[in-house]
Design a protein around this nucleic acid. Structure first.
Length: 673
DNA sequence: GTTCATAGGAAGCAGCGGGG
DNA sequence: CCCCGCTGCTTCCTATGAAC
């Protein structure tokens, strides 16, 4: 064990000098100065960074083993990190006996008969080449004292063998023996195979352990496999459920709230920006305006360079450590991240679309006020950790089925995944959690991939290719982030709203009529995969892009999803939007221009009207460049009718769309920029 | 055996009401 | 006032069962 190894990576990371906020800025807990033991005042000050800000000096607020940090453990003894150990076996029952021990354990404290318990399995991600994970081992093991059952013997031998310093070795041996003795005479807290499951959140009341979440069945091989993995390290944390007064104090003293005051001052400086409804519209030259640039230099959350799996694993480990640090301090752990849904957290940037403003209030999910949401995020975080470590992908739906009683509905999983994406400041795809693919492509395009992730196996690291032709449609490729080269002979890209229209175009040999192009459909509202692919295509090939959507409010909304993104995914707009997208059709004015028969018109229903009204309030429609877009929508509203692409035939010509409409629109330039 | 209707799932959006 | 949970709406696809 390296006595000088860093054990608590709190805020500053290796890339702290980057202008982008690191994940540590939004990790669940700020630095706990009391936890640092011998950390002097200056270092403490440097470590007191608040979420949402980037430390000017990337001071690494860390705890060194050499600092001889001393923290009272759950038995009331002064312990150093080197006292910690790994349990050998997770044999367990689901019984807790809080009164057995004589020493004051938080579990046995008479006024703490109600609290929750996590179990957490940490497994070093990059075994051989990874940096020493002693930090994790220590921190996690520290939580064990007093909670371990007699059946869980500390395994200190391997660590003692590695102790370079004789004194430390002796001290550790002595303390370990002491600890072992204490653990044997103290509380029993065992919970079957759940021991090896992170995010098994339990509620302890009146000395009984009651599962808040579904425990995996005994025949769940996953848990056993996880433990038998050899390099698994068990962690067990506990937290008392604080009463409201505790929460009040926590709230008043939290750095996050202090920060919120400062942020509101920052926000004040945005009053000069144009506001439309709830969405602030950034001026196009905002970067050149000193006041704005000073307060909004970070309008996006994610780094332009995707994080590697290793970085993400370290980030998650950091979050877990901070959670544990909060628990050690008997504070309520929480996740805190920049709001992604709240309207006032969203700005509209004409160059990108909807974006999340970093300097804004934060969303806080704490275990006291939002226990369910916290547990769901914790569980999903566990799954993502495993996906990253095992280099696997999964779908939201698969995640949902991992713990249906806990999640309750698919929506809670969806929400948690997006929250975690914000928390870790990465796109959802980087979490190895993907939605079912539905985007289709047809046209000449060759895509080369090269994994950027150093965790990928060598064989996977070889270049792969995706080849699309005009002969057949294909599902869009996955691993958008790994695309290195896109080559095409196409002159433009046509994005189609519906799959039916997509196939209709192909059946009508659309390439013979409008030339060499790439046709893509997201099949209704586009999924992230499709939007991401379209964004990369625009970025790498620089081709003009046209959207062909229904002449109805939803068609326009889908168009806007491609062009400016959505508020819900504003945090990832930089990777999803195509602001240069052109509205090719079907324009409301096309109904007259192409003499579309009245039989093909459909009257607005109540929902269409409401949707259109909502769209007319969209911030981008106030941009001078889009006044023609607004006029088209107002025309649609005035007429109160809609028209679908499938019904688009004039004079009984079933190939009207492919043979006449599209060629005319493209050649005459009758589209909206 | 074919056709049609329905339910559920996946993607998206917005709004409302209760509770702290 | 804000957060959270729920509801309701769109798109399309797939699976299932009833009707012909």
């Amino acid at each position: 064990m390296n006595a000088n190894s860093t054990i608590v990576p709190l805020y500053a990371r290796a890339d702290a000098g980057s202008k982008h906020n690191s994940v540590a800025d939004v990790a669940p807990r700020p630095c706990h100065e009391d936890y640092d033991g011998g950390m002097d005042a200056d270092r403490r000050e440097a470590s007191e960074t608040v979420p949402g800000t980037n430390p000017a000096a990337p001071e690494r607020a860390t705890l060194q083993l050499g600092d001889e940090a001393v923290v009272p453990d759950s038995l009331g003894r002064q312990k150093t990190p080197s006292d910690l150990y790994v349990p050998e076996s997770p044999q367990a029952t689901t019984r807790i006996e809080p009164d057995r021990g004589a020493a004051p354990s938080p579990l046995s404290s008479p006024d703490s008969d109600s609290f929750a318990v996590f179990c957490f399995s940490l497994q070093p991600a990059a075994n051989a080449e990874a940096a020493p994970r002693d930090d994790l081992d220590h921190s996690v093991r520290y939580i064990h004292p007093g909670l371990l059952a007699p059946g869980l013997q500390p395994d200190v031998s391997s660590q003692l063998d590695e102790q370079p310093d004789a004194e430390q070795s002796d001290a550790a041996q002595s303390d370990a023996a002491d600890l072992e003795s204490k653990s044997q005479e103290h509380t029993t807290l065992l919970c079957e195979d759940d021991w090896v499951q992170m995010s098994s959140v339990h509620h302890v009341s009146d000395g009984r352990l009651q599962s808040l979440c579904k425990s995996d069945d005994d025949d769940d091989d996953q848990s056993n496999e996880s433990y038998d993995d050899g390099d698994a390290q068990l962690g067990l944390c506990y937290i008392r459920l604080h009463d409201s007064s505790d929460m009040g104090d926590l709230s008043q003293n939290s750095a996050a709230d202090d920060n919120a005051v400062e942020l509101s001052q920052d926000q004040q400086q945005f009053d000069d920006c144009e506001n439309f409804g709830d969405t602030t519209i950034l001026p196009e030259d905002y970067a050149d305006q000193e006041d704005l640039a000073a307060t909004a230099p970070e309008v996006h959350i994610f780094s332009s360079v995707p994080k590697t799996s290793r970085q993400l694993l370290q980030d998650i480990e950091g979050i877990v450590l901070n959670t544990i640090a909060a628990i050690v301090e008997e504070e309520v752990p929480y996740f805190e991240f920049h709001s992604r849904v709240r309207q006032q957290g969203i700005v509209f940037d004409p160059q990108v679309g909807f974006r999340v403003l970093l300097h804004n209030k934060l969303t806080k999910v704490d275990m006291f006020n939002s226990p369910r949401r916290f547990a769901v995020m914790w569980k999903v975080l566990e799954c993502i950790f495993e996906l990253l470590r095992r280099k696997l992908n999964t779908t939201k739906r698969d995640l949902f089925y991992l713990d249906v009683p806990l999640f309750g509905s698919q929506k809670s999983v969806d929400c948690a995944i997006d929250d975690i994406a914000c928390l870790l400041q990465v796109s959802r795809a980087q979490l190895h959690c993907i939605a079912s693919f539905k985007g289709l492509i047809c046209g000449n395009l060759e895509v080369s991939f090269e994994p950027l992730d150093e965790l990928e196996d060598q064989e996977d690291g070889e270049q792969r290719a995706f080849l699309s032709t005009q002969l057949e449609s294909k599902l869009l490729p996955r691993d958008i982030d790994d695309i290195t080269v896109m080559q095409t002979t196409a002159e433009f890209v046509l994005i189609v709203e519906k799959e039916a229209v997509f196939h209709r175009l192909l059946n009508d040999r659309v390439f013979d009529h409008i030339g060499d192009c790439i046709v893509i459909t997201g099949i209704g509202y586009p999924d992230i995969q499709t939007r991401s692919f379209v964004h990369r295509l625009a970025e790498m090939c620089g081709l003009p892009m046209y959207a062909l959507v229904d002449c109805d409010p939803h068609g326009f909304d889908i168009l806007c999803n491609y062009k400016y993104g959505s508020r819900a995914l504003a945090f990832d707009s930089e990777n999803l939007t195509v602001p240069s997208l052109r509205w090719l059709g079907l324009l409301p004015s096309d109904i007259d221009k192409f003499n579309i028969q009245e039989a093909n018109w459909l009257a607005f229903n109540q929902y269409d009207t409401g949707k259109l009204t909502s769209l007319l309030n969209a911030p981008f429609l106030t941009l001078p460049d889009l006044h023609l877009w607004r006029e088209e929508l107002e025309l649609m509203q005035a007429r109160g009718i809609k028209c679908e692409l499938q019904a688009l035939n004039v004079d009984g010509d079933l190939t009207f769309l492919t043979g006449r409409f599209l060629p005319h629109k493209l050649q005459s330039g009758h589209f909206l920029l």
